[in-house]
Design a protein around this nucleic acid. Structure first.
Lengths: 334, 334
DNA sequence: TTCTAACGTGAGAGCGCTTCCATTTCAACT
DNA sequence: AGTTGAAATGGAAGCGCTCTCACGTTAGAA
């Protein structure tokens, strides 16, 4: 494995110049740079990341911290990883990954504090995940995905849950539905709370009363959605707003099990617009987060932050995208 | 950020001793070690990874190289990442991630050669992915997941496709099915070819003829499965062996669209046993890879390899796990 | 021709750690 | 008390790179 020294020697320049020539930024005579690059190429030279990192204080690697659940129970994690990987490699950054279970784990702290990453994308959907705090306190430039209300000092990036949820509920109202129920995600999650709030708001604005039994808390899974829908069915709703697509899938199942049809008897809307929503039967009306965009923006922001850690925290809200498909229709005329 | 020097000074020992005390292996008086550790703790000392890596030549990080498709179209990628993350953190290793598109990309080579990772887990399902070769030639300890026939010089780890596929097909035969068709994955993938081979073998061994029209190549997606099944339906099969669960889902849809029932009219089996197979209606008879185990073994093997790169290459085959569920039954009596 | 300023380059000091080698300490023997 | 070898520690040399600082070079202005 050739070192920079050898490249320098064979190019007839000093190590300093060789470094400058290869790094690209500083002033080096064009001819020199070309010569050095040629030598480096012919030697198959690759800079040693550790040495570079030690000398420069930058590792060229960013990290993603993701609750395990978001990867295993949900397409979200995979999509996010996909998006971040693309965005990072576009900027020539490496990507490290930490899946966090409930415990913060000494691991988490230790790894972070070693300068192994220049910055962190933290997906923190749960209000009270204990590992979030130590990470944010670690002094590493971080971008938080999803809102974490207790930390106004941190950079946020999130999709407009409230406006997004309003879109789908308003869509139901505009179709003429009056008896609209909702299945929420776990209410210790910010997004679940916000989506519920949007539901309440829209209902109230349209003079539709919401009683407690019209709200069924669940867990963002198909099975949970099925069970929740079963609880809701006796109310004879004509439409359901599900806190995510997964639960909408389960709810659809429950409706069919009851001998009813979607959307003839009951209209159903979800949230997320993950790939499955499109191929579902019937294709699901839902409102989506553009995760590729989210990832891109997260990395962009992080890069800025790494360049200048003193940047004031911002709370960036991305618009949600609404897709009307075939799971919604007018309420039965009866 | 305190350095080792400070810890040493405050502990009244040399830097060398402090290093030994914290690293854990070498001989240090118990009392000294305790003292140093206490000081380090109170200072909130975290070793600088770059420095450690530069001095020791080890980064404490392993990498996963994964074709993008496996993460976006398939639960496999997510499960693998999950498993590897767990296994890695159990050994106190960091995990880096590279998703590869078709092009090898200078990126891939460059990043690998910098000593940023000590070893690589490479998921190489496609026969002819061009990025595989440069990686394996990079001289970094690597474990290949899935068979890559052209490289007997590399450590392999894979699930027994052949035996697994035999299990499900034999199950169909033992139920009395004669007219068994198959939907395969893309035949440039090793696993698809192997599963098809198992099908042919079992059929032949049981005196059942296979004609070309009984084999429909598809793409491992539900839509692909649906289309393939539609092509196969005119043959009036009583059972289908699908190259993966996803296609089995689609095939089931196609069968229902034709007014037939699973398993009354047609039995169906898949491959993979991803989480969805269990919750599918009807729950899918399938044969699974234990990805958690696979990951664990991959990391174990990689750790051995990092410790001693001269270890002779081995081809480890993990057994597949067979789960009989409700998508299979006896053929219609007619 | 001489002065000045920009430009290009080299020398060398680290970055924070591990580890080899030399040295000291100490307990267990003669 | 003296010897000895193992155990514990310190000194110091790097690991391969970046970057500051100082110096030499060149070209345009005086």
């Amino acid at each position: 494995m050739p070192t920079l020294d050898e490249v320098a020697r064979l190019s007839g320049v000093s190590r300093a110049t060789a470094s400058r020539a290869l790094t690209g930024d500083a002033k080096v005579k064009d001819e020199t740079r070309k010569r050095v690059k040629a030598v480096a190429e012919s030697l198959g030279y690759r800079p040693n990341r550790a040495a570079r990192s030690l000398a420069s204080g930058k590792s060229g690697v960013i990290g993603l911290v993701l609750p395990t659940l978001l990867l295993s129970d949900d397409p979200y994690g995979a999509l996010l990883i996909h998006g971040l990987s693309d965005a990072a490699s576009r900027r020539d950054l490496g990507l490290m990954l930490w899946l966090t279970h409930q415990e913060p784990g000494s691991t988490v702290r230790e790894i972070f504090s070693g300068g192994i990453v220049d910055g962190l994308v933290v997906s923190a959907t749960a209000l009270n995940h204990r590992w979030v705090e130590p990470i944010l306190d670690g002094g590493i430039p971080s971008v938080l995905l999803g809102r974490h209300p207790s930390r106004p000092d941190v950079h946020h990036l999130r999709v407009d849950n409230l406006a997004g949820a309003r879109l789908v509920v308003e869509h139901l109202v505009s179709l003429g539905h009056k008896k609209i129920v909702t299945i929420t995600g776990p209410l210790d999650r910010v997004d679940a709370v916000e989506r519920l709030q949007a539901y309440r708001d829209v209902m109230e604005e349209n003079g539709l009363t919401v009683t407690d039994d019209m709200i069924s808390e669940s867990n963002y899974t198909p099975d949970g959605g099925l069970a929740a829908m079963a609880r809701l069915l006796p109310l004879k709703p004509t439409a359901v707003f599900c806190g995510n697509d997964q639960m909408a899938f389960g709810a659809t199942e429950a409706i069919r099990l009851a001998g009813l049809d979607v959307p003839t008897d009951i209209s159903i809307v979800g949230f997320d617009d993950f790939p499955d929503a499109r191929s579902f039967r019937p294709p699901l009306t839902t409102v989506g987060q553009d995760i590729a965009l989210l990832s891109q923006r997260a990395v962009d922001r992080l890069a800025e932050l790494i360049a200048d850690p003193s940047l004031p925290p911002e709370d960036v809200i991305l618009p949600a995208k609404f897709s009307i498909r075939r799971s919604t229709g007018a309420p039965p005329s009866q």
